[in-house]
């Protein structure tokens, strides 16, 4: 079905308020997301920021070395190590973190008293606004060697557990920290989606004798499915970003082996050493993988009959 084409001028006249409203956001996107893309050129240069009279000239005067940075990157065991860590943590959190906000949202949604619900929501949202330094200090004060748990165990003549500095269980620790910080925040979208599910469906199902679990399985979860799929795709596109400060702060505690992720790799091997071309190469690689993952996940979503992040 083809709609009749409306001339551009008419559309402009009709929509100009909307365009004006979008303009600031678009400008920010342009200046902070699109223009800097051009800077990726340094991934193919032996970039020296001090050449020429200004930063632009530094781009122009730096020596062009093609894929040299990428070659170094792919030969660097530290890079592959960081990549492996990142993917392991992403996979782990996809299984053990991603579903939790959904469960919490369903739980909150089933609470009848709106005052109790509001109170719980406020409490679980709050940690999202704490900085990572604070979150980790909180964990250290609770679970660290001089923390509440350890001191209580000592009083009971028990040997305290090593929770904060054990590289083998680090993945559990970072996930626990992330869950504590962000589980509440993650429920917002799901709660919104839950509120759009038609209440009549539940009543009809209940009248037909469906129990609590059958209603959950046949009404609630299918109702949430588009949102879950959408967030899952977005999360996959971000698969190579698992956090930064959280890992920097605990780096010495568990060592580089356990805590090096791609973002910290770029920081230590590029920002901290002034080796910008190398970091740009790693960043470009990361972006390319992210794009592939988004496209692949979206394709799978289409196959499953979902809309994904864009329609075909």
């Amino acid at each position: 079905m083809k709609r009749p084409r409306i001339p551009f001028r008419v559309r402009l006249q009709r929509d100009w308020q909307l365009l004006v409203m979008v303009a600031p956001g678009f400008l920010i996107l342009l200046v902070f997301s699109y223009v800097p893309i051009a800077g990726n050129v340094i991934a193919f240069q032996d970039y020296n920021p001090y050449l020429g009279d200004n930063p632009l000239e530094a781009f122009l005067h730096s020596e062009w070395i093609g894929f040299g940075q990428f070659q170094l990157l792919f030969e660097d065991p530290a890079f592959w190590h960081a990549l492996r860590n990142t993917l392991t943590i992403t996979a782990f959190q996809l299984v053990f973190f991603f579903p939790l906000p959904i469960l919490l949202a369903i739980l909150l949604h089933s609470l009848l008293s709106s005052r109790v619900r509001g109170f719980i929501q406020t409490v679980v949202y709050l940690p999202h606004f704490f900085s990572w330094v604070l979150v980790i200090t909180f964990f250290v004060q609770m679970l660290g060697g001089a923390g509440l748990l350890a001191q209580t165990m000592r009083e009971a003549d028990l040997q305290p557990w090593n929770i904060m500095t054990n590289p083998d269980t680090f993945i559990l620790l970072v996930t626990a920290e992330a869950v504590w910080k962000d589980i509440g925040w993650g429920t917002i979208v799901f709660l919104a989606a839950l509120s759009t599910i038609d209440q009549n469906l539940y009543e009809a199902a209940a009248a037909d004798g469906a129990g609590r679990w059958r209603r959950l399985w046949h009404i609630t979860l299918p109702g949430l499915r588009p949102v879950i799929v959408l967030l899952l795709i977005l999360r996959l596109g971000d698969a190579l970003s698992v956090g930064f400060e959280q890992f920097i702060l605990q780096r010495d505690a568990v060592g580089r082996e356990a805590s090096e992720v791609l973002d910290t790799f770029v920081y230590y091997f590029s920002i901290a050493t002034g080796n910008y071309g190398y970091g740009a190469a790693a960043g470009l690689f990361k972006a390319a993988i992210g794009l592939c993952l988004i496209l692949a996940a979206n394709k799978v979503a289409h196959r499953l009959g979902e809309q994904g992040i864009y329609a075909k």
Partner: peptide
């Protein structure tokens, strides 16, 4: 031997 304060061992934020 556990002679270093655990907060120092656990986080750079200490």
């Amino acid at each position: 031997d556990g002679l270093v304060h655990p907060d120092i061992v656990a986080s750079k934020g200490a």
